[in-house]
Nucleic acid binder design. Structure first.
Lengths: 157, 157
DNA sequence: GTTGTTCGTAACCACTCCTATTCCATCAAC
DNA sequence: GTTGATGGAATAGGAGTGGTTACGAACAAC
């Protein structure tokens, strides 16, 4: 498996693919559900994403803990959506798979003898919080159903 | 030097401190300028941030390439702001020190035989772009002067 | 030109995160 | 009990980041 093909563009920042993996899985499950297959195994999902089934299981585990999917074990097992696709926002997915803040503070405590070192962290915290809120507000406006519709459109045109 | 003190909370995502370092440096330079000292060495700036001067030089190098600061060499050397503090937005700083996208796409190309695998990347790209735009719009609303004001306020109350 | 300071950058280490893989216990239906 | 897939631990490799040291380049004052 090649390590860095064309579709892999991880720049300097962030750039983990957790949100992408989770949304891809949910979108694929929504399409399968629309076709009448409401239960899928992690192997089937991994085949669409083209990754390892364990990666998918870890991602689906996060989504299960967030109440977005449910799992059935034993025979006839697999994963299914716990809500309708239009009731799953990308913000819910984001919250399920990401935890930390977007911007990191200092690694070491700033010099408390300096006026800037003393007061800059709360000041930056407010700005960072506002920026993250704006990002979340945008993610909330899109649902898995929207992504599925866009996906089916994009592949034609 | 301890490896993870209280002010170090890097969560799961992103969480590099480049923006914090750069904004701290600029804010400190703005305060020094207000006090009459318009030129500072990387050692002086590093003392406030409490990090290594090389880290600061790396950051200020990015800011210099973006036209936000200038450097004088020889004797009486050091860094100074190239714009007024109220003309430097956090978006300009963000653009100077970060490059990659916030959300990463798949590491390996999705299965092109699957409808979702074929069309999901452009669909996700649009959503991610809207979210990043919202974030940037917020960062543009705050300037170094604002951060300095907030910083001096926070340390009192 | 010599001197002295800083910048600029390369090289390197330590640590963390992420992806991927392997392996084994668990579980429910038959 | 057998069967098939989940769930999780353990592991390994790769990449990014912060930190450190070291050294040459640039520049102004003398």
């Amino acid at each position: 498996m090649d390590l860095c093909n064309l579709s892999c563009y991880k720049g300097g920042m962030a750039a983990n693919s957790r949100l992408t993996i989770a949304v891809h899985a949910l979108t694929w499950m929504a399409l399968a559900q629309r076709r009448g297959q409401s239960v899928m195994t992690s192997d089937q999902i991994a085949a669409s994403i083209n990754t390892n089934p364990v990666i998918v299981r870890r991602s689906l585990g996060d989504l299960r803990r967030a109440g977005l999917v449910q799992v059935r074990r034993g025979s006839g097992p697999g994963w299914s959506l716990a809500r309708r696709p239009n009731e799953i926002s990308l913000l819910a997915v984001f919250n399920a798979v990401e935890d930390g803040p977007l911007f990191g503070m200092h690694h070491t405590e700033p010099n408390q003898g300096c006026p800037v070192g003393r007061g800059i962290q709360p000041a930056l915290g407010s700005v960072y919080a506002r920026a993250e809120t704006a990002l979340r507000r945008q993610l909330r406006r899109t649902t898995i159903e929207d992504v599925l519709g866009q996906t089916l459109t994009h592949q034609v045109g």
